[in-house]
Amino acid sequence: MSDEPKTPGTSNRVLIAWLVGAAVLVAIVAVDYTVHHHAHFAADGIDVDAMPEFFPVFGLVCGFVLVLISKTLSIALKRKDTFYADD
């Protein structure tokens, strides 16, 4: 128990982890640019998913949207976790 509480980013190891993560994302973007995606629903004229970097963007947007939906709902539905126990 000698370690002092640390916040992320203060130690070198954590910094390295952050950098590796960033590097992976950059690599994904780079590789994705070279891969040919074919449109899944070409028959319906939908080819947005064949655009380069569609899926990274889609992932980011979905992450944002879902979290925002959750948090919006949370405002209305949030209760103390003893809510039902209080009966």
Binding site: G21, I28, D32, P56, G59, L60
Partner: peptide, 23 residues
């Protein structure tokens, strides 16, 4: 193609998490 679809989506939704960490 399959692999890149997943990597792209997952990697960047992970990024979204860290960007939204404050809320």
């Amino acid at each position: 193609e399959h692999v890149m679809v997943m990597l792209g989506m997952l990697g960047f939704s992970g990024l979204a998490f860290f960007l939204l960490l404050p809320i």
